[in-house]
């Protein structure tokens, strides 16, 4: 395929949204309040809407019989290239919020840059998405502050979530081969450049929320290369259930 790198680059962006949208979808109807329930569902809806735009674009590049749904539902685990952060489970509301926060700050910085891409379709998607994502960022940041600076119990819960999810942050700034190729062509974002800004924003906000910044220098990686955590198989099992059980049907 001529645009192999671009295709892979798009999946590298969109798989994050798909898997995070899927995780948030699990919570619908089970939130701590109606308002947070509605807000988390909103974020899920935004992310999945963005996924559709990306995959529709990717399916055009790929041609053949590839559709947004075959990309979303019919790959093997190793072919999903989302970061490990987004596949982490909804252990409790603190994990959900902290996962969201750690991703949103990145995503917002990323989309700001993607708007400068030489690929006009990606620019259009980025422009539409960043409005939504800046709202997500505000929502998750507010909740990190609220929970971090709420009660003793909520502070401990957020601290625990930060301590456990921190190890997945560094991977956000890794470049795959497809990423490198796209950076070279002026299409992709050089995420390595975003790293220091990211940690500055995250650290400032966490400090404001009375959360201690983990000083661990040990990070996990692999998602971007298709090597996932043990959670991923179960997530895909659910997500692909219909397509695998009833192949080649339309819904």
């Amino acid at each position: 395929m001529k645009n192999e790198n671009l295709y892979n680059y798009i999946l590298g962006i969109a798989d994050n949204n798909l898997i995070l949208g899927q995780r948030l979808g699990e919570l619908c109807g089970h939130g701590p309040s109606l308002e947070t329930d509605i807000a988390c569902t909103n974020i899920s809806l935004d992310l999945l809407g963005q996924v559709r735009s990306y995959y529709q674009y990717a399916s055009k590049l790929k041609g053949d019989n590839v559709t947004e749904d075959s990309i979303a539902f019919l790959r093997k685990e190793k072919e999903y290239v989302n970061v490990l952060l987004v596949e982490q489970p909804n252990t409790d509301f603190a994990y959900t919020i902290v996962r969201q926060f750690l991703f949103d700050i990145y995503n917002n910085l990323f989309l700001e840059e993607l708007q400068k891409s030489h690929d006009i379709t990606l620019v259009a998607i980025a422009k539409k998405s960043i409005k939504e994502v800046s709202y997500h960022r505000r929502f998750s940041s507010d909740w990190v502050k609220r929970l971090g600076d709420g009660t003793k119990e909520s502070n401990l819960k957020v601290q625990e979530a930060v301590d456990n999810l921190w190890t997945y942050t560094d991977e956000l700034f890794h470049l795959t081969d497809a990423d490198k190729a796209m950076v070279k062509e002026g299409i992709g974002v050089d995420v390595t450049v975003l790293k220091s800004k990211y940690y500055k924003i995250v650290n400032t906000l966490l400090t404001e929320a009375n959360i201690v910044i983990p000083d661990s220098k040990w990070f996990q990686k692999g998602g971007k290369e298709g090597i996932h955590t043990e959670h991923m198989g179960y997530l895909l099992n659910d997500m692909q259930f219909m397509q695998r059980t009833y192949p080649n049907m339309e819904w």
Binding site: T36, R146, D149, G150, T151, S154
Partner: peptide, 11 residues
């Protein structure tokens, strides 16, 4: 969700 609601109130 009780701890979440309590935290929001305290905050």
């Amino acid at each position: 969700g009780a701890w979440v609601r309590d935290a929001a109130m305290a905050y």
